[in-house]
Design a protein around this nucleic acid. Structure first.
Lengths: 199, 199
DNA sequence: TCGAGGAACATTGTTGACAATTGACAATGC
DNA sequence: GCATTGTCAATTGTCAACAATGTTCCTCGA
């Protein structure tokens, strides 16, 4: 996985995974002191991590009261999010077709293999992780990865309802379809597959 | 202005204004200890504020090294940002045309008056503040303001180059054009004016 | 001259203690 | 009975000291 040097990142990664995999349901409050004991560290890095996740949209904070896991976005908001993700990821794919760097294809192929396996298994956290990694690879490929920080909070908000509304194997085939179109150098087909995949 | 109860927010607001108004140029490093002395408080709230602004895209952080004011987005990234802002704000305006709540028009009119005045003056910080407030009103009007947290970081990244590339009075007239179309209940015209305004 | 090592410094990361705020509930007055 | 006020526990906000890390610059040897 990722080896974060500082505690703040470790805590944030851990909590992020627990939220996205559905282990922490919307509305669940997170107490700084409780988490500090749980992780065996002080409240400082916990605070930083919670602030991090709040800005990513996974938590909502009320001053002097605390944070809790954010609710799924409303239908209206989710619809906007879908369009934003499409815009970002489509731009990234179009940018890739300018260079057609084979390194990215290699990474996507590797991810696909792992993803297929994970979708068959039972570790939902792993599935989420790989799904996210797939799209992250796409976004990172464009313009030196400058879009990632823009894309991540949008992506995360959408994944708040990941666990409960997904046919995993179908999702895998959609990923595979995108990569196939990229291999075949069919830009329009790749963009169309992406658009149909993000809903 | 806004009266934040906690120091963290006060510091964040203050620094945000200084960055957006161009007093703090891209690349400028911000030291926790220096700011703590400057504000007369300890490093704790400063840390929180810097983390805040980092997640908003105004600062970039390197672990164990510190933060500095972010650079303007690349041409490629800026183009994506433009499309994202259009998507969000257009959605918000379309949502308003479902209800046509006159309260929003009143607020926009008030903002326009202040904005016109500020564009004539010399306080660039004030101009930025009011320009941002205008668009924030639009976004807040839709779906109980659920889009604001999505919109803000996108907006802020775009405003990193605000000070150096704007004809203020023209900007005012564009705002006025949008509001005029809303008063006249011409949705298409409002959306078109918005699209032309966000570039 | 140039690069490797390393000491000194500046800066961020972490910690535990204390202060301020909140929300719930009991006591009070009408 | 009902609103108001006081009190208390839980929680976040703030602080100052200490630890760990990164940077700078100097020395030393080839």
């Amino acid at each position: 996985m990722k080896l974060a040097a500082n505690l703040q990142e470790q805590v944030a990664s851990h909590l992020r995974r627990r939220i996205l995999s559905g282990q922490l349901l919307p509305g669940t409050p997170l107490r700084e002191q409780t988490l500090a004991v749980e992780f065996g560290i002080s409240r400082g890095p916990i605070r930083d991590a919670l602030l991090h996740l709040t800005k990513e949209g996974l938590l909502i904070a009320r001053p002097n009261v605390g944070v809790r896991v954010a609710n799924e976005p409303s239908g209206f908001k989710r619809n906007v999010i879908v369009h934003l993700r499409r815009e970002i990821e489509a731009s990234a794919i179009s940018a890739w077709f300018e260079t057609k760097d084979p390194a990215l294809l290699k990474q996507l192929d590797d991810n696909l293999a792992l993803y297929k396996e994970a979708c068959g298994g039972s570790d939902l956290g792993q599935v989420v992780e790989l799904d996210m990694a797939f799209h992250r690879l796409l976004v990172e490929g464009a313009d030196n990865g400058s879009l990632v920080d823009l894309w991540l909070p949008i992506m995360l908000r959408m994944f708040l309802r990941y666990s409960r509304h997904r046919d995993l194997m179908e999702s895998y085939h959609e990923h595979a379809g995108i990569v196939r179109a990229m291999h075949a150098r069919h830009e329009w087909e790749a963009l169309e597959a992406l658009k149909l995949h993000i809903v």
